[in-house]
């Protein structure tokens, strides 16, 4: 039994740690600003960081594949999807056509980058950086200014609060549910399907995975397509909550998302970590933002400083873990 507990801790230490850090940060915040003790403030995290959670889920899977796997295009895809859908809606296209179209766009965009990475042997960093510029560029070509959305369906989804049962006056929006649902789907994918396990095997040792006869090439393309899918969802959610589309949206979100993944205990070298940790990484990010909002006088750049420090600590802990494993 003791052995099992030790195993569990060794294996899931970084993820558990992100949970503990989240509790600590939130606790500290609610001591400083008692208003944070209201349940609504907690649920606001899901409202405010809905898109960040979505892209971070995709990012986690990409980073898990190892070999420098990363997706820098997520913010660009959000900008592109929001602008394109706003433009299409303004042109009178049915929203039930626009939404699936945007999802297909995201998947195709991700798959294209995956194909370039796998078959043209371009570094993921470079291929997805290109993707970022391309997506943002196209968004600006569609419109140089922000395009507002007046579509009734979008408006209804964006502005209808869902009151949580059993709690008084605590609500979320339909868009904030997409992230948690995707989280569940991804947990299923990563632990209970061959697709997910192949990702972990690749991240652990890609050469081995190839020799074990696993479909590495296909999986790599699928992972980037999956991240594109998550980003497209993020873009739709983003455009719904702001009721607009703009090429400047979500600038720098790729870095926030990478930070959330790392703080959540996923190793940048791949193979270790999971999306549950990423959820806490995103929540930590959101909590720091909330604390600053409650303070009201501090520069919003303190968010970046806080996230930066936590990322550093998380990477430090990962290094210690890897070192210890190597030694034993």
């Amino acid at each position: 039994m003791k052995q099992r507990v030790k195993h569990f801790l060794l294996q899931h230490g970084p993820v558990l740690l992100s949970f503990v850090v989240f509790l600590l940060v939130y606790f500290a915040g609610s001591r400083m600003y008692p208003a944070m003790q209201k349940p609504q403030v907690f649920f606001n995290l899901f409202i405010n960081d809905a898109s960040l959670l979505l892209v971070s889920i995709g990012m986690t899977m990409v980073i898990l594949t190892g070999e420098g796997g990363i997706d820098l295009s997520v913010g660009g895809v959000i900008a592109l999807v929001s602008t394109a859908s706003a433009a299409l809606l303004r042109a009178g296209v049915n929203p039930y056509v626009v939404i699936p179209l945007m999802i297909v766009l995201g998947i195709a965009f991700g798959a294209m980058m995956g194909w370039i990475i796998q078959y043209l042997k371009v570094q993921p960093f470079i291929a997805t950086l290109m993707g970022l510029y391309l997506a943002r560029g196209v968004a600006y070509i569609i419109s140089l200014t922000s395009v507002s959305i007046a579509d009734p369906v979008y408006k209804q989804i964006a502005l209808t609060p869902i009151y949580l049962p059993g709690m008084e006056n605590v609500y979320i929006y339909p868009t904030s549910l997409v992230g948690p649902v995707m989280l569940l789907v991804t947990i299923y994918l990563s632990f209970f399907t061959r697709f997910g396990r192949t990702i972990y095997a690749m991240g652990s040792n890609e050469q081995s995975a190839i020799l074990m006869g696993l479909p590495v090439a296909r999986t790599k393309i699928l992972v980037y397509a999956f991240s594109g899918f998550c980003s497209a969802l993020g873009g739709i959610v983003f455009s719904m909550s702001l009721l607009a589309g703009y090429g400047q949206f979500a600038s720098g979100m790729e870095l926030d998302s990478i930070a959330a993944v790392v703080i959540g205990g996923t190793a940048l070298t791949g193979g270790v970590g999971n999306v549950i940790g990423t959820l806490f990484g995103v929540l930590i990010h959101g909590t720091i933002v909330s604390i600053l909002q409650f303070n009201g006088t501090l520069s919003s750049w303190w968010t970046r400083i806080g996230v930066g420090l936590l990322t550093l600590v998380a990477i430090g802990i990962q290094s210690i873990y890897t070192l210890r494993q190597k030694r034993s």
Binding site: Y200, A201, N205, M212
Partner: peptide, 29 residues
């Protein structure tokens, strides 16, 4: 292969069976 070509981060069982895992309801490992 000569140098053990397995994935150190996966469990022993997974290393033996990955790619051929028994499935439940055709959906879940």
């Amino acid at each position: 292969y000569q140098e053990t070509n397995l994935c150190p981060d996966l469990s022993v069982a997974e290393n033996i069976l990955i790619g051929r895992e028994p499935m439940k309801w055709g959906l879940v490992i």
